[in-house]
């Protein structure tokens, strides 16, 4: 068991998400930066779908009631066990009774803490991911708080095999030099935008507002304008309204200013969507902090697939380096 001494700002249990329920209005949830979650798991010899703790901006403080092997990945976060600093991207031992303390993230927004064996809360619909809106998954369906006790699953690899494992920098996504561009496949209902506004969507440096969380990233920037039309039957009167549609995860909807829908987003509704952040780029967006900027880069679906290939190769190389 792990006892939570301080839940941090917003810490939840997440895995690769809850799939196959979108049609009843259930978003996937799951790690916002899936790549960092995978790296954290790989370091301690876990499966990719084992649950980790996603710590947002400020980390949690934890007491381990048993010996364990842990690793941190994602946003850079200073951490200590006793007086010993815990390096990022390294499998380290925590002994029974020891406390892990974490500070604020200094680069990026979300840090993943993996524990060999995974956080073993009961799965709900085959996933341990927390979905706070209706209070399911994770630990009692909510963010962690002082006094919570988290079970640890059975370790798959012997701890002396993974201890000290370090992820080589060349196999990690570069958080520091990460540009502000976020690749987007423009489309869906982008016909609703004027040509000028469609260009503006990708020419603008959008600022991440304080309302940027697991549900969506609300962005601030110039007004975008819709093509005037007589609204179709059932759409509603506002020019931003369409007859209610399903929203892809990562889609950019335009009530007025853009909102990029993230892992806990609403699954559908009546606002025009104008493009979708490609799958691997959602990981990068999830590390953007409030007041930082993002710029959408229009890519074709083939380019999106290529980027996914790059991320996949990087992950495979990391797994190989760790196992080799």
């Amino acid at each position: 068991m792990i006892e939570v001494l301080d839940g941090g700002i917003s810490t939840t249990v997440q895995d690769l998400g809850r799939h196959g329920q979108y049609h009843i209005g259930m978003p996937p949830s799951g790690a916002m930066d899936e790549e960092a979650h995978r790296v954290a798991n790989a370091l301690v010899g876990n499966e990719a779908d084992d649950a980790t703790l996603e710590m947002t901006y400020g980390g949690a403080d934890l007491r381990f009631e048993t010996d364990a092997v842990i690793a941190l990945s994602g946003a850079t976060m200073a951490a200590t066990i006793g007086d010993e600093p815990v390096p990022m991207h390294t499998a380290v031992r925590v002994e029974e009774g020891e406390e892990l303390e974490t500070e604020f993230a200094t680069d990026g927004a979300r840090t993943y803490l993996s524990v060999a064996g995974g956080i073993d809360v009961d799965p709900v619909m085959e996933s341990r991911s927390t979905y706070t809106l209706v209070g399911i998954g994770g630990y009692e369906g909510r963010t962690l708080a002082e006094g919570d006790r988290l079970p640890i699953g059975e370790q798959s690899a012997a701890s002396d095999e993974v201890l000290g494992a370090e992820a080589p920098d060349e196999h990690l996504r570069d958080l520091d030099g990460d540009g502000t561009d976020i690749a987007v496949v423009v489309g869906l209902c982008d016909y609703r935008l004027t040509d000028e506004s469609r260009e503006r969507l990708c020419d603008t440096e959008w600022t991440v507002t304080p309302e940027a969380d697991r549900v969506g990233y609300r962005l601030e920037g110039p007004e975008l304008e819709f093509v005037e039309r007589e609204q179709p039957f059932g759409a509603g009167r506002d020019p931003s309204n369409v007859v209610d549609i399903g929203y892809p995860v990562g889609s950019i909807q335009l009530p007025q200013k853009p909102i990029v829908l993230m892992q806990d987003a609403v699954t559908g509704g009546g606002y025009a969507t104008v493009g979708t952040v490609v799958s691997t780029e959602r990981n990068r967006l999830a590390q953007r902090r409030t007041h930082e900027t993002v710029q959408f880069e229009a890519v074709t679906v083939d380019e999106a697939v290529e980027r996914r290939g790059v991320a996949k190769d990087r992950m495979a190389a990391l797994r190989e380096a760790l196992e080799g």
């Binding site: 496949v185 759409a235 007859v243 995860v249 990562g250």
Partner: peptide, 18 residues
């Protein structure tokens, strides 16, 4: 027929409800 990123396909049958 529209791509939603590299992992969704969105198909609009009509702009109006019927």
């Amino acid at each position: 027929y529209e791509y939603g990123g590299d992992d969704h396909i969105f198909v609009e049958l009509d702009e109006a409800m019927s």
